[in-house]
């Protein structure tokens, strides 16, 4: 019984041996320095791979470099040294235009502060990634946006501006928006950092459902035990290094 369960789950070694293609994200020997008068090294020789469709969490004390790592994965920042691959394509050498396109198509972001555009309604916010892709808003895209809002349980507030929504509703809108272009990767940096317990649980159930229903690869930075213990993998960062890399 126990043996068979061990087989079912990956060992670290299996993990590395698996075909490259299965990794949607790969980081090789990443160093990151910040230059603020003096050079400070924030990340030290990070090597990581993420499987397509996996649900991962990153934990660690604040200031340990979690957000820096996530921003590197999300191509919002560039490593000082090392290589980053998304879907097998190296991103740290891409032009700004290529990166913009990659972010639009392949990556969805959710941040601690909900960052909806207050000028737009919930539905319009959800449609933005599609509009950025310069494709026409068809009936199907509208339906998809509405379906996402329904999936998130916020179809009732679809015509509300951000100011007229609760924090939880805003964050769920932000998640729906992140999913609009059906990205392979969803990156969430402390998405519930500003939410009450109920909303936090709600958001995490949704992340779990997204992972299962859409096969989206999810990486979430969190301080919340309840959340991390529900993900498939916990990566603990300490002082800019991977301290522990745990599989469920």
């Amino acid at each position: 019984m126990v043996e068979s369960q061990i087989k079912k789950l990956d060992t670290q070694e299996d993990f590395v041996k698996t075909e490259k293609k299965a990794f949607v994200i790969e980081l090789k020997n990443i160093d990151k320095f910040y230059y603020t008068g003096v050079a400070t090294q924030v990340l030290f020789d990070i090597n990581l791979q993420f499987r397509q469709g996996s649900f991962n969490s990153i934990v660690g004390p604040s200031g340990s470099g979690k957000s820096t790592l996530m921003n590197l994965i999300g191509t919002l920042d560039k490593p000082t040294k090392g290589e980053i691959y998304i879907d097998g394509k190296r991103t740290d050498k891409m032009t700004k235009k290529e990166l913009a396109e990659l972010r639009n198509k392949a990556i969805g972001f959710v941040f601690q502060f909900h960052y909806l555009l207050p000028e737009y309604t919930a539905l319009e916010n959800v449609l933005l990634p599609h509009r950025i892709s310069k494709e026409k808003i068809t009936k199907e895209t509208k339906t998809r946006a509405l379906d996402l809002l329904t999936f998130m349980g916020i179809e009732d507030v679809k015509n509300n501006l951000a100011n007229n929504m609760s924090g939880g509703q805003q964050q769920r809108t932000a998640i729906a928006r992140a999913l609009m272009n059906n990205p392979k990767i969803l990156l969430a940096d402390e998405p519930t950092g500003n939410l009450d317990t109920d909303s936090t649980d709600r958001v995490y159930d949704l992340l779990r459902d997204i992972n299962e229903d859409f096969k989206t690869t999810i990486i979430v930075i969190t301080h919340e035990r309840r959340i991390a213990e529900k993900t498939d993998r916990i990566i603990e960062i300490r002082d800019g290094r991977i301290h522990l890399d745990l599989l469920k």
Binding site: G74, E101, N104, F109, Y115, P129, I132
Partner: peptide, 16 residues
């Protein structure tokens, strides 16, 4: 700038 930042994270080009 907050809106611009999030738009860029969503992949709006610098030109736009």
């Amino acid at each position: 700038q907050q809106q611009l930042g999030i738009l860029k994270a969503m992949g709006i080009t610098n030109r736009s």
